[in-house]
Simulated scan of single mutants.
Amino acid sequence: MDSSISITAVAYRVAYTESIAQDIFELDYSEGYDGVLVAAGDYTEDIAGRYAALKECRCILGISGITRDGKEALFYKSVYQANMEAAFRLEPPFALGLAQWRDREVPAYSQNQIFERIVPEHFKDGAEKTLIEAGEKQKESDVLLVVGKGVRSKEEVQKIKASAISRGYMFGVTRPVAMNGWALIDEIVGVSGHIYSPEVCITIGVSGSAAFYAGIENSGFIASVNNDECAPIIGMSDVFVIDDYENILERLFQVL
């Protein structure tokens, strides 16, 4: 609706700021938000800044309110040592850090969905190596198959996992897949999971965040299947197929 603002509110616990920023980035990729507003707090600037760096978008901190001007939103903040207030127009995407909220009679929100997310702690290099050594390590293979949120259900994820394991491949998932409960936390690939260096890495429905890519960048060859030609993973791949994975998965396994 032109007269309202649609907001999805997300609360976090048990997470570092870099993990929160990365999680918001992945949520944004799947949901397509116009922008992100980080609530006022001790880590507002850190989270907003990290998200803006990942998104490569404009970031304004110290926001005190939002109004509408037709179809556009105006964002307010104090300037000139708090002696004046300025209004900014930003084209999506954008990142905002809230300083304090002033009642400006903003129109009622069309939706306000509040949900809590728990993201795993960010593992530094040393801790990550310990995690891999301590966990139940998969049998070494020249092929790694990684499933992302583009695979649309837990049943499909488990079906692909069973096919991969039956062929002797290593299997992994992106963090959003595990956070949805569609796979094990220990199957996450990336900075908050496992780091692999297979001869061939195949990604299916993976968007390709920087945190994920750290887990596969040492692969000898990367092949990706995605129905979004603008997904970051496309630029990271040696070869890719723009199509729904269901149309080519069986043939792909035959080739391998």
Rank of each mutant, 00 (worst) to 15 (best):
T8N: 14
A53H: 09
V10L: 15
A53L: 11
I20K: 04
A21W: 09
T17W: 03
E45K: 15
C57N: 02
D23S: 14
V10Y: 13
G32M: 10
K55H: 07
A53F: 13
Y16P: 05
I63P: 00
L54E: 03
C57K: 00
S19V: 12
D23K: 06
L54S: 10
G35V: 09
E26T: 04
V36A: 13
G41D: 11
A48G: 04
T8R: 08
E31N: 06
V38S: 05
L27Q: 07
V14Q: 15
D34C: 01
A48K: 07
G49D: 07
D42N: 12
I60P: 00
G41I: 11
I20W: 04
A40I: 00
I60R: 06
G62F: 02
A15H: 07
A15W: 08
L61H: 04
D46V: 06
E45W: 02
I7P: 09
I47V: 15
D23W: 00
S19Q: 07
E18N: 11
Y29S: 12
I60M: 00
I63S: 00
G62L: 01
G41A: 12
T44S: 12
V14Y: 13
I47M: 04
A11T: 13
S19E: 15
S30H: 09
F25M: 11
E45G: 04
R13T: 08
D42Q: 14
V10S: 09
I24H: 07
F25W: 03
R13S: 14
E45T: 11
E56S: 11
A48R: 05
D23I: 02
L54A: 12
I60Y: 08
V38D: 08
V10P: 05
